[in-house]
Computed example of a mutant assay.
Amino acid sequence: MSTWRDNLRTIEPYVPGEQPNLPDMVKLNTNENPYPPSPKVVETLKNFDCDSLRLYPDPNSQVLADALAKCYGLQSDQVFLGVGSDDVLAIAFMTFFNSKKPILFPDITYSFYDVWAELFQIPYERPALDDHFDLIPEDYYKENGGVVIANPNAPTGVLQSLDFLRDVIEHNRDVVVIIDEAYADFSGSSALELTKEYDNVLIVQTYSKSRSLAGMRIGYAIGNPELIRAMNDVRYSYNSYPMTRLSVALGAAALEDEAYFRETVAKVIETREWTKKELKRLGFSFRDSQTNFIFATHESVPAQTIFDVLREKHIFVRHFGQKRIENYLRISIGTQAEMERFIRETEQIIAQNR
């Protein structure tokens, strides 16, 4: 009998948010930007030389690396590029977490972290957030093989201060500390300055949220050149052409339109703040989100009930069955009109289930 199944690597995979395709839907379940990419991106796409697609892309994605370096006042060798921040984080896990000591990340955070740890056979521990969804710094003082902190955290939306991050880094100078900033642009705060203070800090960001380019899959990391070289060595060992010519061109174009970037981020924040007030009026409670989503629980109506009825109405939010957060909903911020519809329908659900 064949025994090939005995050699399969079995793992519980990451489950992404549902991707429905309905004409009347309000999609608030995957933290996408509700606004289109910059007009400069659209113009670049219209004028893109499609004949160039017959050629392999630049392995270094130099045009985009240079553009990001210029944007942040860095050298190009401080920038690593990948196919979305998921790709960047996966390569960082493979590159830096190779000791027998467990890496540390919270029990409630981006649920891909433990998947990568399992996939790459990295030991890990998940210190529990406190009852207010804050990290407890002392949990990260013990010996470990590395630290990963999403800041602001997902799905909670909580932002830890720079002083908090410095404290954790100071207690972990012998390992790499990754700060995942997928949502930092909506918080008005970034830990990028810490890469100048510490040689073991890697900041990871993405175009998927604030740059409205989730469909292009562009992510990047910033750190000292030694960290970046090590990540490139790993990346080139299995995929030497990760970024397409089109993604490089559109990624660089997006950086040229700072005004549009600031405008759309401000619109998302304005609608987020309006939605917070409305959710409180309806009896929801939540930490003060610093992201493009709100992680909320209702005082009397179960999250599962609200999720199910909204889904029937083609309004999609995210519900996690994970312990401690099973009665919470993660609600992405859409346009003002989309959030007004969400609030109207949610108000009806609550009235019918009191």
Rank of each mutant, 00 (worst) to 15 (best):
E18L: 11
P20Y: 15
P23G: 12
D24G: 14
M25F: 13
V26D: 08
K27N: 07
K27T: 09
N29A: 12
N33D: 04
Y35L: 05
Y35C: 06
P36N: 06
P37M: 08
S38L: 11
P39K: 15
K40T: 12
V41W: 04
V41M: 05
V41Q: 03
V42H: 01
T44I: 03
T44M: 08
L45G: 02
K46N: 01
K46W: 00
K46Q: 09
K46I: 00
F48E: 01
F48M: 04
D49L: 04
D49V: 01
C50V: 12
C50D: 05
C50Q: 14
D51H: 13
D51I: 12
S52W: 10
L53A: 14
R54C: 10
R54Y: 08
L55Y: 08
L55D: 07
Y56P: 07
Y56K: 11
Y56R: 14
P57E: 12
P59F: 10
P59K: 07
P59E: 10
S61W: 07
Q62D: 12
Q62V: 08
V63G: 04
V63C: 06
V63T: 14
A65I: 09
A65H: 05
A67F: 07
A69L: 15
A69W: 02
A69S: 07
K70V: 02
K70H: 09
C71P: 00
C71S: 10
L74W: 04
L74Y: 02
L74P: 04
L74H: 10
Q75R: 07
Q78K: 02
V79Q: 03
F80W: 03
L81G: 02
L81W: 09
L81P: 14
G82C: 13
V83H: 00
V83A: 01
V83G: 00
G84L: 06
S85A: 12
A90W: 01
I91E: 14
I91W: 06
I91A: 03
A92E: 06
A92K: 03
A92I: 11
F93K: 04
T95I: 04
T95Y: 05
T95V: 06
F96A: 03
F96C: 01
F97R: 00
F97Y: 15
F97V: 00
N98G: 04
N98H: 08
S99H: 03
K100A: 13
K101T: 01
P102L: 07
P102F: 15
I103M: 11
L104W: 01
L104G: 01
F105G: 01
P106V: 08
D107I: 04
I108S: 01
I108H: 00
T109R: 06
T109Y: 13
S111R: 15
S111A: 07
F112Y: 06
D114F: 09
D114R: 11
D114G: 04
V115S: 12
V115Y: 15
W116S: 05
